[in-house]
């Protein structure tokens, strides 16, 4: 049974450091994961046969391979080929690759749901295909894929905990280390759990309010 007296003051600094690391992982990975998703989706939709196939293969691989295994490949496997990244960089690369694959599926769906008349109209005004994709198709596709992208962002928050498995001491890792030290797993993981629930819930609220703010009449998906 647990009979430890808890001095939270001792726990807070390492947990705080861990939380900062979690934020760093998420905030660095999310924007690149987003851009990666756009790139893969565009490659799959508008690329030539080869590019489109490659992008499809990319999605199949990174959705089929567990993220944790991917992190191991990058952090423990690549050095055997002479490619070495720090643990933090490895984690971020893994998150970007994986997050991008999932994001691209939503964005591709968004692109396909934009009616073909939009492209026709853009071309008829003298826009090039690239201009049309950039200023007409993508803004609409991204709006339509926003719910899915938000979901993936929430997943990213949760899966950032896997970085601990390759020695990045983010909040889960920090918790695990002090829990082992003070043998207080239950209390500390409840604390960590509250942290994630708060983070995920707040992120969900913020995303919902952003979605509301940029909502446009006629975009039912948003």
């Amino acid at each position: 049974m647990i009979d430890l007296q808890f001095d939270f003051a001792i726990l807070l600094p390492p947990l705080y450091q861990g939380a900062l690391m979690t934020f760093a992982l998420i905030l660095v990975s999310a924007p690149f994961g987003f851009l990666n998703g756009i790139g893969i989706a565009l490659g799959r939709t508008y690329g030539n046969w080869l590019v489109s196939r490659l992008c499809h293969g990319y999605v199949l691989f990174f959705k089929g391979c567990p993220l944790l295994l991917l992190l191991f490949i990058i952090y423990f496997g690549l050095p055997s080929l002479g490619i070495t990244f720090t643990a933090f960089t490895s984690a971020v690369i893994g998150f970007i690759l994986c997050n991008g694959a999932y994001n691209s599926e939503y964005i591709r769906g968004g692109i396909q749901s934009v009616s073909s008349g939009q492209m026709t109209a853009a071309l008829s005004l003298g826009m090039s295909r690239v201009q049309a994709i950039r200023s007409i198709i993508l803004p609409q596709a991204l709006r339509k894929s926003l719910p899915g992208l938000s979901n993936e962002f929430i997943y990213l928050i949760k899966y950032s905990s896997l970085a601990y498995m390759i020695t990045v001491v983010e909040i889960t890792g920090a918790g695990n280390i002090i829990a082992a030290k003070y043998f207080a797993f239950f209390e500390i993981f409840i604390l960590i759990g509250i942290f994630y629930l708060a983070l995920v819930t707040v992120a969900g609220r913020v995303i919902a309010s952003i979605e509301k703010k940029i909502a446009i009449p006629g975009f039912g998906g948003v």
Binding site: K158, Y159, S160, S161, L162, Y164, M165, T172, G175, N176, A179, F185, F186, F189, I190, I192, G193, Y196
Partner: peptide, 8 residues
């Protein structure tokens, strides 16, 4: 996160 659930 699944990792936190497993640890907990």
């Amino acid at each position: 996160p699944i990792l936190v659930l497993l640890f907990l």
